[in-house]
Design a protein around this nucleic acid. Structure first.
Lengths: 190, 190
DNA sequence: TAACTATACGGAGGCATCCTCCGGTTATGC
DNA sequence: GCATAACCGGAGGATGCCTCCGTATAGTTA
């Protein structure tokens, strides 16, 4: 390869294969053992050395984000869908219900995000930003409509809702009950 | 000592002294370095070996609870005070404001509690129970009065409020703004 | 006071995890 | 086919958790 050729060549086949194996293995292991899962364990499950794992995903959170990427994208998509199909306030309600149901199932993910953010506060986490963006979309729309109180931002909203979902043994019922309460709080006062 | 004397004799002077040193050191170190602080570090700051630390506080959370014990007691006391001095609803509002202000300052404590509970869900944490008890006291009173919605328990309430306080870079203003929102949600609907 | 013993001390060390580093291997471009 | 950039893997350094046990000492008894 000439020195002046700056365009990176496409990644090697084995690299692509191993990255994919790692994400799959991580998905399985994280689902089975939650936050307990160690990097060695995941690498072993993928049939790969730890060195390879760390080359592809320098920090634990990078791997976690790769695992849950599709789920996060689904939440973003949901925001678009409800915004297209519903009036502002009902779309906000629908999206939050979707979020809570998701968070209930993938509570581990929220915890990992929280932990990573705890350790490195100024770290840009793409999942976080995506979710905040989706929340902002439905929220702002409801605010412009006058159905949601104006003194509130997406960060506030997610603060509240993801915070309440992070508890270990919260049930879906309790979650939904609390969501109704939060929705009452979010609603613009007449 | 006779064999049949089962009454434990009072703890040795050095044990008392070291326990006290450990709590003081832990308070300082935890305040300075937060959750990062290692057990070795705390033992060193107390001028004591790790063995001594672990004899007094078998689990990290035991030490943490000892450090924040007075603060937790203050929250419990606050619940009693507001219940004596104020009408049900205002007392709930006042206590929650107190809680949020405290949580803002001692966010690290909430995180440690959460982490311990995450690791060992069926673990009885006295601080947790004390705080829940205090919350229950003011909440039930407001419910009997008809000013707080009845379909809510202390666990729900703390879920919501402590969850929102746990975020790393939340400001006191944001906290208080969210609390107002939550209070709107808690209030009984007319 | 002196001996005795329950109690406490402390840090070496076993175990686990994180993450890096680098010698060896392999796929890709020429 | 050859050169080499890209990649692989796992040994090993660093750190933290927690235990274990030989040593020291406070309190008790005579």
């Amino acid at each position: 390869m000439k020195a002046e050729q700056l365009a990176t060549r496409s990644p090697r086949a084995d690299a692509v294969r191993n990255r994919d194996r790692l994400v799959r293995a991580a998905r399985t292991v994280l689902a089975a053992r939650g936050g307990e899962a160690s990097m060695e364990e995941i690498a072993r499950a993928a049939g790969v050395g730890v060195g390879t794992l760390y080359r592809h995903f320098p920090r634990r959170i990078d791997l976690v984000e790769a695992v849950y990427r599709e789920d996060v994208d689904a939440l973003v998509l949901l925001a678009d869908t409800v915004a297209d199909d519903l009036e502002p306030w009902p779309s906000l309600v629908a999206w939050l219900h979707g979020f809570v149901r998701y968070a209930q199932a993938k509570r581990n993910f929220l915890n990992e995000l929280h932990e990573a953010f705890e350790k490195t506060p100024d770290l840009a986490l793409s999942s976080r930003e995506k979710i905040f963006g989706a929340a902002g979309k439905v929220l702002v729309r409801a605010q412009k409509n006058g159905s949601a109180r104006p003194d509130l931002c997406a960060a506030d909203l997610m603060q509240l809702v993801s915070g309440m979902c992070m508890a270990r043994n919260i049930t879906l019922e309790q979650n939904q009950r609390l969501l109704l309460l939060v929705l009452d709080g979010i609603k613009a006062q007449p």
